[in-house]
Every structure is written in structure tokens, then in C-alpha cells.
Design a protein around this nucleic acid. Sequence first.
DNA 1: ATTATATTTGTGTTCGAACACACAAAATCA
DNA 2: TGATTTTGTGTGTTCGAACACAAATATAAT
Lengths: 351, 351
Amino acid sequence: MEQKKNLTIKDIAKLANVSPGTVDRVIHNRGKVSDKALAKVSVVLEEIQYKPNVFAQSLKKQKSLYFSVLIPRKEDDGYWRTAHEGITRAIEDFDHFGIDVKVTSFNSKLPADFTSKANEILSESPNGLLITPVFLQESLDILKKFENAGIPYVTFNTKIPDLNPSCAIGQNLKQSGRLAANLIDHCCKQMGNLLIIHLDENPGNAPHMIQKENGFREYFQSRNHNMEIKSIVIPHREPALINDILNKQAGDLRNVTGAFVTTAKVHLVAYPIKSRFNDCVVIGYDPTANNIDGIKSGTIDFLINQNPYMAAYEGIAKLTDLLVFGKNIDPEKLLPLDIITSENLDSYLLN
Amino acid sequence: MEQKKNLTIKDIAKLANVSPGTVDRVIHNRGKVSDKALAKVSVVLEEIQYKPNVFAQSLKKQKSLYFSVLIPRKEDDGYWRTAHEGITRAIEDFDHFGIDVKVTSFNSKLPADFTSKANEILSESPNGLLITPVFLQESLDILKKFENAGIPYVTFNTKIPDLNPSCAIGQNLKQSGRLAANLIDHCCKQMGNLLIIHLDENPGNAPHMIQKENGFREYFQSRNHNMEIKSIVIPHREPALINDILNKQAGDLRNVTGAFVTTAKVHLVAYPIKSRFNDCVVIGYDPTANNIDGIKSGTIDFLINQNPYMAAYEGIAKLTDLLVFGKNIDPEKLLPLDIITSENLDSYLLN
DNA sequence: ATTATATTTGTGTTCGAACACACAAAATCA
DNA sequence: TGATTTTGTGTGTTCGAACACAAATATAAT
């Protein structure tokens, strides 16, 4: 029932009246054990709750475990830069567990790059993989291969159906849309009109944007109000183009009291919005360097923290739990939806 | 310069041309080493960055480390209940590092209880202590004794000057007051009047309340507005008494648009406030069971999460880092100031 | 019955650090 | 100079699990 304290293999051997070697064979079922011996050992194992000494185990195995990480390049986005920092920190923290981590980056706009890098990693057969499966079909294809190769993997940032990662780390995106709506609701008291802005990517290729928008709209559907909620798609990152489209699509709008930008690129539109619509509440994602400036200068009011730092860090932590300590880990880890304002920004930054 | 990978004591011995025993003696400076040998070994140790193998170390030392935890009883407050949960979880998580944790609770209203329990712990000379030094003078006295006994301790919840804990875990309280002000500012647009409510404790004995109030007022000082900000002290927890004092002190107030309650007891006043002042924004602390109900029913708008769960968990984690892995740990760990609303509540609850 | 072959079981070594203990070298005293 | 103490150094065992290999037993083939 209750686990006795620290029974060793030798103890078990004594209890079962066999040799330590036999117990070892049973535990790792590496065959060559008579039914009789197996029965004896099994009984004892049932009885006591054998927990191997992780220290002895790791010492012996010298498990220089090899983890691979595949994420977009840090220069692709402040979001990814932060993710890289989380990885770096995790490597430092878990270093002495004898793990060996190799980080590979891909261009987040090039599916082919993703696939080729992933295949390269596969050929090195790491003990575990941490990956951001940003491309749906490509990810499915390649990760099935990892499954077949028996290489456990943890995903973060994106969740892909039909895959069975050891753990999927992420956030409830629809809920984060609802949260944005909730904040705007608190500030605007259901007056004026609202904007949803999709930036630098096309919602068609970025399901996460859709989910956020759905959540946002859902929140207001259940409340009576007479605000207009308008979605604008700006698949560019150049200021001139952004202004252009903003003029075309929102030029006729009056009295906009809230704007919800569905990505970390929010800093690109914050000022244009604020200068057009006075006192408009601007909400976006992630405290990247540019967005931090926005928060401090007041062009951005709220940021929802997708916490790439923690997500990446947790990814390595989960792999370590799984492979170093042999723990069971939950197949999904939902990160909290942090709200960041000018006044709690620092508390999220210093670590 | 760069640390070679995994040099062992034997390797060092070979490099320095001495025996492993000598290297060991130098590393742990347990004497009996000639100046000549010491010099040789020191040179090599400078050269390479020796990092002992934690697994071998722990295996040998069989360090059944004994940690003591001293915190208020879980029934004293939802805050403390959550802290207990964090401890429990940490014990589970770190169990296999061979640590042994004993939790002692004291009545958070009785300094004498605190002192006697602490002395009892001291007499058991644990390897480390996690403590919430809620009573200023008593904590100073007893923790000095721990320092003299060479027992490292980590504090959380309260920070006491003149003490040198291995790590002080907590939040920037003044900043959390500013954050509350910031949220109210966003919602109220500097119209109407504001309340600060101190509940169930007297600010005189609870410095944390003062700091929060100071932060709150400071935020508005730097902005021009003509709101009245009134502080109310209600050193009770009985609904009747609360209503009574509220009537006396706020009976004449009109148009209150925001109320900031400085503790986790916010649920006790949320409804009275909301029913008196329609649309008043209510902000308090911590998602305790009662406050969760308040958030869900809409009587509470925002909660700032003091995160006792994480604070307590981190406490055990820090002790483990320090004593099991011999890491250097930062003397202060500031936790983020999480903002909780009805829409991100769940993301903080499920773990 | 007697090798030969397969199956099962036991023993011994290893991982790296900690520490006890034995021995060697130098220092002190007679 | 020899006896004795002090100091310095090296060797060997231990922790618990993993695994290689040898030993013992059982089974099959001749």
C-alpha cells in the first residue's frame, strides 16, 4: 500500500529470493527469466512501490541525452526571439542533468526550410524533440515520422489535430480573444465601435488569428450592445502599406473605442490607430521589445502575454521530466493568459 | 575559459599530477594539503571549470535533506490554503531528490504560536527552512538564531529588513497598488470617486496594506484628475459590522466608480459595494474560492494574483537548488503581478 | 548415457564523488 | 641518531542501477 522508503534492487532480490540480476531483468523486462522467478519478483514489486534511485540511474547510464529543438529564427519576430531566450535559460538550468540540446532554426515563412531541417534532425535520431509545428501539413508529415521512429516530441505554439505529442504546450486562443474583448468591454462600457486587426499574415494561413477573432466576437454576442465590430486584414509589415489599408478600410469609421490586434506585431499599428482615434484602447500580444516601447509610451494599453519564454522553457522541462526522470507528463499544458499593462510590465520582464 | 565537458576529480588529479584524494581535499578544503599540491590543483581548477556530477554526489551523500516549512494554518485564509497546495505539489515534484519536508502551521493571529513553533523547528536543526515571517519583531529574533545556527532559510510573503534570507520571494507591493490604480484608471476614465478599503486587519499591523495604498495614490498623484480617493479601514470580517462601517464612512459618498480592496478578503465587501454603487469597478487580491465566485458572478471585476501557490512552490524549489544542487540563488525573487478577470481565471486555475 | 545447445541465474565491474584509513614523508623531540 | 609525533598523500570502499559475462541448470540431439 504505502511505499516503504527507498527499497533497492538488492532488497527486492532478497525479498523475492532471487539475484539482483534477475530483478533487474524483470524490471526492464529484458527477457531470460523463468516464469517462476518472474512470478516471485512480480509479487514483491506489487507489494512495495519500487522507485528507482534517479541519481544512481543517471550516474550509471551517463545518459548524455540528446534533445533537438526546431523553432523559427530569432530574427523572424520578437515572439521567437523570446522563445529562444527561454530555451537558452532552460539549457542552463537543466545542464547538470546531463542533457545535450541542439537548437535548429528555420525561416518561419518557408515550409520547405521547415521540412528539410526537420528531416535533418530526424536523421540524427535525437532522444527527444521540441518543435513548433507552424505549418499544418508539413508538420503532420514529418512528425508522423518521428512517431514511427519512436522519438517523443513536445510541441508548443501550435496545436495540430491527429498528432500525439508527449505534451502540447500552448494557450487557449479563443479564450484569449474573449479576454481581449473583456478588457475592452471594461474600458469602453459598450460604447463606440471596435476593430479587429490581422497583421502581416493572412488569416487563411494562420488559424490562430481566426480563433482569437472568434473568441472576441463570441464574447460580445452574448451581451447586448450596439457597437460595430469590424475586421481588417493587413497582410503587410511596411508602415506605408499599413497606413494605406487602414485609410481604405477604416477611413469612414468614427468613434472607434477599441482595437484588438491578433499578433505580436501590434506595435506596427498602435500609433496610427491612437492618432486616428483618440482614447481608443489598443490590445495586442506579447511584450516584445517594440511592444514594450508601445506600452511605455501609451500607444498600446494592454498586451496579452503568450509567454513564448515560458512555453519554450517548459518544453525542455517536459522533455527532461519525461526522459531523464521517466515521469508521466500530461499531454497538454495550457499556459495562463497574462495581461500586461504599463504597471506590471516590469514584473514580467525581470526574471 | 570555456568549460570542458565533464571533467572528473580523477581527470583533475591526473592534470595536476596528484592523487584524487588530494583534489578532493582541495575542493572541500578539508585541510592536510601542502602548499605545493594546493597550488598545482588550484591552477588546474582555475583553468577548467569543474562542475561536480550532481548525480554521483547525491548518490554518495544519500543526502536525505530535511526541510522545514513554517506557514499559517490553511484554515486561516484562502491565501494560505493555496500556499499549502503549492507546498504539497512541490513536495511531490521534488520527492525523488531525496528531500524530506515537514510542514508546520501556526495561527496567523498569534505571534506566540509563531515563535514557539519556530523554536521547536530550530531544535530539530533542519537543513533548510521556508518561512513566512508575518510578525516583524518575532521573525527578526528567531531568524537571527537560524542564521547563527548556519541554517539557510527562504522567506516568502513578507520581506523583513535586516535579515539575509538565501532568497526572499514576493511581489513589489507598492507596484501592485499602482497596478490596481492603473486598471481603475482605464475603466473609469478619471471620473467619479474612488475607495481604498482595508479589511479584517489594521494597516498599523499590516505594512503590506500601506504599501499597496501608497502605490495606488502615487499613481494618481502624477495625473491630473479631480477624483476623491478615500481610505476606509474595516478591521472586521463579520458582514454586519462591515456594512455598518461602510454606511458610516461611505454613506455620504456619491458616484464611486472604483474600489480597491487591499487583501484577499475582497469577497466580503464586493457585493455591498456593487449594490451601493452601480457599475463601480471592484479590485482585490487572489483567486481564493470565495473570490472566484465573486469574479464569476460579476461582483469582483479584477483580482491581482499574489500567487501564494507559486511563491510557496518556488520556496521549496529554491531550497532544493541551494542545498541539493549547490547552485547560487538570487537573494530576491519577485513574482509577476498577474491580473485576473472572468475570462482568464480558468487559465490560472488548472495547472 | 553423453555431449551439445539453449535457457536461466548469479557475479562482478562501472559510473563519479565522498570519505575512512593506511601508509609515506617530514618535522619534532629525546 | 633513533624514536615519536605531525603532516601530507594515495588507496580502497561505498552509494544503487545497468549491463557484460560467467556459471549453473534445463532441454535437446546423438
